[in-house]
Nucleic acid binder design. Structure first.
Lengths: 166, 166
DNA sequence: TCGCTGTTGCGGCTCATTCGCATTAATGTG
DNA sequence: CACATTAATGCGAATGAGCCGCAACAGCGA
């Protein structure tokens, strides 16, 4: 099923791209460099900003199209971290996510955490769970310890965002 | 913890509403009737349509505001079923959701299915999982049985909606 | 019956993402 | 190397879900 084993480097991917009839463009080169160098969990907009730092007028929609294409090639995957925009990461770095609804902190967790759920869903319903595409939400340790409503100071990826009061 | 035990009927909720300084309006009455009578998993837009069948010019944003208010009262909860709009249901009818990414079928599942995950997340990370707010996605039995890409004819709650084929 | 104040209709706005279209540029070929 | 192909791009506009502000309206207690 895996048409593409695992991309090892930017040039690797570019080669794959070319072998599929695609073209190696500077925007793609830079986008891939950003993906390989930076951390995980970056949104399309963040990636666009990084690309634009090198190539000022790469349009946001070009970034979206390239991310799409790379996902089609199996190089990338995206996940939805609760509310908010999708985040992209290399297919080789997949993992599950726990996202705190209160403070927005994001926890990367090994897929093993979902093993029992995956098993149970398959057994009971024949349903094959994909624990990576959507985050599992809830409340992080810090927020869970507080009375409902007060977010702990998040050390997460995004800024903490308390919702409206009681 | 539960300021509101469980709403039993439309009038119940209206009374609760009034006791909190809210007002009983016809749009709220009709919206509540729709919620109590119809099935689960309805989107704001669907609910608006049902309300508008009785009261032609209830505005969509009024429905959103009322849903919001009812959620604040603890009468409703909403969940995000994969991609697509949020769905609302009575707080007394909560359950988890498994949503097929391929054919869109929605499976209601008891929260017990997530028990192991909930336990594991708490033990390993102190994270309190909320298995209701966001659906767990994957592929339903029918779709999982097929070669990737071909959606089975879904018998889910909503209409089957194969996304634009490749 | 009044008046206070919660609600509504309406239109416009945001945010994330996608689309159409004319233009540009990466490639394989001659 | 010049050229034709045709994939990619820039740009702006559109989409879909949901939220916001504001002025007009309408419950409800007095």
């Amino acid at each position: 099923m895996a048409a593409t084993p695992a991309p090892r480097s930017v040039d690797d991917v570019l080669e794959l791209l070319r072998s599929r009839g695609g073209r190696v463009t500077s925007s793609r080169r830079v986008l891939l460099a950003a993906l390989f160098e930076g951390g995980p969990h970056r949104t399309a907009e963040e990636l666009a900003a990084e690309v634009q730092a090198q190539l000022a007028d790469v349009h946001l929609s070009t970034v979206y199209r390239n991310l799409d294409e790379l996902e089609r090639l199996g190089v990338l995957v995206h996940s939805h971290l609760g509310h908010g925009p999708a985040t992209y990461h290399l297919a080789s770095e997949t993992h599950g996510h726990l996202v705190c609804e209160q403070c927005g902190a994001t926890l990367e967790v090994p897929e093993e955490l979902f093993a029992a759920l995956v098993r149970a869903a398959r057994t009971a319903y024949g349903f094959v769970v994909d624990a990576r595409h959507f985050a599992v939400v809830g409340r992080c340790a810090a927020c869970a310890a507080l009375p409902a409503g007060a977010p702990a100071s998040a050390a997460g990826t995004s800024e903490p965002e308390p919702s409206g009061g009681p």
